[in-house]
Design a protein around this nucleic acid. Structure first.
Length: 612
RNA sequence: GGACCUGUGGUGCAGCCUGGAGUGCACGCCGGCCUGUCAAGCCGGAGGUCGCGGGUUCAAAUCCCGUCAGGUCCGCCA
């Protein structure tokens, strides 16, 4: 992983006085030649040549410097040392271009061992990769690796940048409670037993959503917070129990304003960590995203868009294509895929819920009237050759239209799925990702394709009781022009909700909120929430809204994901100091753990036997 | 709740399909040699409950069942 550009320089700070030392290891260069300097750090590597010559690499968070020792040394990996020595240009031919400080070294060294170290359980060098569970058990050592320290420094720089960008835009940072009240919608919450009110619980907030809306009622007008959010849901590569959001809410704004506010922050961050001057941030509707990419979080680093073949097969005799929609993706040069790979793709499509997957290998595509064989002028086989299990069911004109609609020139693989609209798009979208991820990485590993997805549907699916569910959350404002559909055709109502997507990762979401009690009641009604239920669940919010709630809306940026992508990591654990495993365990501390009887008693808890 | 992959000296792996002595590689560690290395080199050495439990078998790292742990994904994440 190339972290060079992400490395936040340790210089440019006010703290030139750095305690026991007067230089950072990684910042010693030719400009210091002749100086006598003192550094502190860990022994990264010793190379003992003889009793008269040893090389000791000393590392701190800024980098590494080679120290030349011309006597016997008793230094081992990860010993903590203070070294005073003369910065010297390395002898001709011994420079190390791999090392930032590779043209100099410290000579005439005086070494003080500040602390010894046991042999670490795994090597902290850049060429070794320990299993993640071992790394997590010894996280304090794992974090000592330069890649991880760089990630932490990158994270700090991004947070700093985000804070500045928000303050610049007139936002006030407000902290909100971690001990909050249950809000029965949404993610599963972590409960915290109350000692003073035995039998009652606080919950940890899944986000500061309601608190920030109350701040708008209060007149804060522009709020932000780098907030910890907690959700007791299953973990993933891009999901931890606790994660960090740049949480934003503003009053008297439109969706457009919110997008611009967030764009400003994103552009600042990308400018600082990637030196990108004019970052393009696109916008597309949810409908277009689904239609063309089969997902609400499109990865725009590569094409391979979904193509509608409805017109081509409008009157087809082929049963499987007599469906609500017929869509396809084209895999360039995919005609060379093996039969077993194609079978895998078919299986994968079925796994994703498709009735089937039709593949077509496109052979030659000639030009009509250009036949080289005068005996068989322009027979279709001369012009187009399609190898497919279903080729015999397709009419000639269907094949011709297919070729022109998809712009085929030969050598491609076409994958066709037919069925119900939404699922067909999503299945092809998934196949597109799986077949295209290689393209995405090859294209440009530094690519940052930000896109706003807007005009989400207001409702999405139903709960067990058959009630509609809010796609975003129940305080999301419907599109004004769709308001009248709320009672007639709720599924067609678009909301003023929007997601920010980066390279196919959902970076966050937001919406304009409902500030009118009248509209809120109608939305609750659509969701099957009665007045009484609403009062019970969100009573304090509804009360607040009776005292002059301003129009408002907001957004939250998932910082872990943003930082991971900017650090070129495909896992957010790599940018979190102390993450948990997929089963929610902390390998280092052993948490979660049983509490003592006394603790439990104090909390008024009665824990039954461990379930099997 | 479900699917798949993984678990072998301190670390990373091979061995497993097709059962036959803990058999191998690399790194690290310990000792020795070595005056310009930098993932140093050379020589020697130590280090193992093959995750755990059960089963099949004359015999299990290897086959079967269960279980624990790690990972990826589906469900879940308003």
């Amino acid at each position: 992983m190339n972290n060079k550009e992400n490395q936040i320089s340790a210089s440019n700070r006010l703290d030139k006085a750095v305690g026991l030392r007067d230089k950072w290891c990684g910042e010693i260069g030719v400009g210091d030649i002749g100086e006598k300097v003192t550094i502190c750090g860990w022994v990264a590597k010793t190379r003992e040549h003889s009793q008269h010559l040893s090389f000791v690499d000393v590392r701190d968070r800024s980098g590494m410097i080679q120290c030349v020792i011309d006597s016997v040394v008793d230094l081992h990996s990860e010993y903590v040392v203070k070294v005073s020595g003369q910065v010297t240009r390395r002898p001709e031919g011994t420079e190390n271009v791999e090392l930032e400080t590779g043209s100099v070294e410290l000579t005439s060294c005086e070494v003080e061992v500040l602390n010894s170290s046991e042999t670490p359980p795994f090597s902290l060098g850049k060429y070794s990769e320990a299993d993640e569970s071992v790394r997590l058990r010894y996280r304090y050592l794992d974090l000592r690796r330069s890649k991880m320290l760089n990630n932490l420094q990158l994270r700090s720089a991004i947070n700093h940048c985000a804070r500045n960008a928000m303050v610049e835009q007139g936002f006030t940072e407000v902290e909100t409670p971690l001990l909050w009240t249950p809000t029965p919608e949404g993610a599963r919450e972590f409960a915290v037993p109350s000692r003073l009110q035995k039998g009652s619980f606080y919950v940890l907030p899944q986000s500061p959503q309601i608190a920030k809306q109350l701040l708008m009622v209060a007149g804060v007008d522009r709020y932000f917070q780098i907030a910890r959010c907690l959700r007791d849901e299953d973990l993933r590569a891009d999901r931890q129990f606790e994660f960090t959001q740049l949480d934003i809410e503003a009053s008297f704004v439109t969706m457009h304003d919110i997008l611009e506010i967030v764009n400003h922050v994103i552009r600042k961050i990308v400018m600082v960590v990637r030196q990108v001057e004019h970052l393009a941030i696109r916008t597309m509707t949810w409908k277009d995203a689904l239609e063309n990419y089969g997902t609400d979080k499109p990865d725009l680093r590569f094409g391979m868009e979904l193509v509608d073949l409805g017109e081509v097969f409008r009157e087809t005799q082929f049963r499987a294509f007599q469906a609500e929609v017929v869509k396809a993706i084209v895999v360039e040069d995919g005609a060379s895929l093996s039969r077993s790979r194609l079978d895998q793709l078919v299986d994968r499509a079925k796994e994703l819920g498709a009735l089937g997957l039709v593949w077509m290998k496109i052979g030659s595509v000639g030009v009509p009237g250009n036949s080289s064989s005068p005996d068989h002028p322009n027979s279709l086989e001369d012009i187009i050759s399609i190898e497919s299990p279903v080729a015999k069911f397709l009419q000639d004109h269907e094949k011709e239209q297919l070729i022109s609609k998809l712009g085929l020139s030969g050598g491609e693989l076409v994958l066709v799925v037919a069925g119900e609209h939404r699922s067909t798009c999503e299945i092809l979208g998934q196949l597109r990702l799986e077949l295209g991820s290689r393209l995405a990485n090859e294209a440009n590993e530094d690519a940052l394709e930000f896109v706003w997805v807007v005009d989400f549907p207001m409702f999405d699916g139903t709960d067990e009781a058959g009630n509609l569910q809010a796609a975003h959350h129940p305080f999301t404002m419907p599109h004004i022009e769709d308001l009248e559909l709320l009672e007639i055709n709720p599924k067609a109502v678009r909301s003023q909700a929007y997601d920010l997507v980066l390279n196919g990762w959902e970076l966050g979401s937001g919406s304009i909120r409902i500030h009118s009690n009248e509209i809120q009641s109608r939305v609750f009604k659509s969701l099957g929430i009665t007045q009484d239920q609403a009062q019970e669940r969100f009573g304090f919010l509804l009360s607040a809204f009776r005292y002059g709630a301003p129009p408002h809306g907001g957004f939250a940026v998932g910082m872990d994901r943003l930082i991971a992508l900017l650090a070129r990591e495909d896992n957010i654990r790599e940018v979190i100091a102390f993450p948990k495993t997929q089963s929610g365990l902390d390998m280092m501390t052993g948490a979660p753990k049983a509490l003592s009887k006394r603790n439990l008693q104090e909390l008024g808890l009665n824990v039954g036997p461990k379930p099997n």
